[in-house]
Design a protein around this nucleic acid. Structure first.
Lengths: 154, 154
DNA sequence: GTTGAAATAATCTCTAT
DNA sequence: ATAGAGATTATTTCAAC
């Protein structure tokens, strides 16, 4: 599945604003509306477009705290990692989780209402997991940038 | 601007899938389509909904590498921070940037095609900035979770 | 990939609560 | 101030080329 120049232009537009009407998107990429719609459908079916989301302002919905949590596991064992990944995926406060190289094994981004809610999360998800050797929390003072738009190399 | 239960239900639905037809969204939250549409519009106008994006599969568009970069600035000076924030916001490879507490001042998430592209980014954006004392790169081995959906407290 | 027609949904106005 | 009903407008989508 190769992406040509028109596909890339469609993707750049949609990752910026997916509410653009197909008729306008078609005009911008130089296609007729049906041809454009077929491509968009193809990009969804092929999994290039994985989802379509409204992005919310965390402050305005009551999520005033973002934490960056680094986690070091006790042992370098596959099943322990697997279990942790599964737990993280089911925990709604954890919005992102990356398995990383270096002295820590995972890096989490946690979004909660306040520090009490974070403490509850820590107790339930971190301290109760005996495979975690240690973890470190950095408090986010300011979200400088949050973008879901990827840069297209080509 | 207070969010009532219906607002929250709308937001939960839209941050999961914003392509839902207004007719269906209205039915799910128990409103007529025009009433529902008015609320959605209000939520956009008030900035609760900040954007509407298609999410792409980074692998399939050629962004195979994610890096977690911690940055420590030379001095704790406002103008230096300000300058760094401005630079970061203009750099498309940096998808996220958080100003944090602790020994490092910023945490970046950088998405690029490959390690060569990352090296170019490092030269251009990091090594050329003499206000950076040091930075540390962790390579992302696996994206365990990436969600733009916030957990609603109550 | 395009054109033109049919089906569907979004949106506006007005009325009522 | 907010919701519902009906009419209008616009877009999506399908068929034929």
């Amino acid at each position: 599945m190769q992406l040509d120049r028109i596909d890339r232009r469609i993707l750049i537009k949609l990752q910026h604003n997916n509410r653009i009407a197909n008729i306008d998107l078609a005009a911008e990429v130089g296609l007729s509306p049906p041809a454009c719609l077929k491509r968009v459908k193809r990009l969804r079916d092929e999994g290039v477009i994985v989802g379509d989301k409204s992005l919310l302002n965390p402050e305005l919905i009551g999520n005033k705290l973002t934490l960056i949590v680094s986690v070091e596991m006790d042992r370098d064992r596959g099943d322990i990692y697997q279990q942790f990944r599964k737990s993280v995926m089911q925990t709604p406060e954890v919005t992102q989780c990356y398995q990383i190289s270096g002295s820590y094994d995972f890096m989490l981004i946690v979004c909660v209402a306040d520090i009490q809610t974070y403490e509850t999360f820590v107790e339930r998800s971190l301290r109760s997991d005996f495979n975690i050797r240690k973890f470190h929390t950095a408090v986010c003072m300011r979200t400088v940038k949050f973008s879901t738009e990827y840069h297209f190399a080509e």
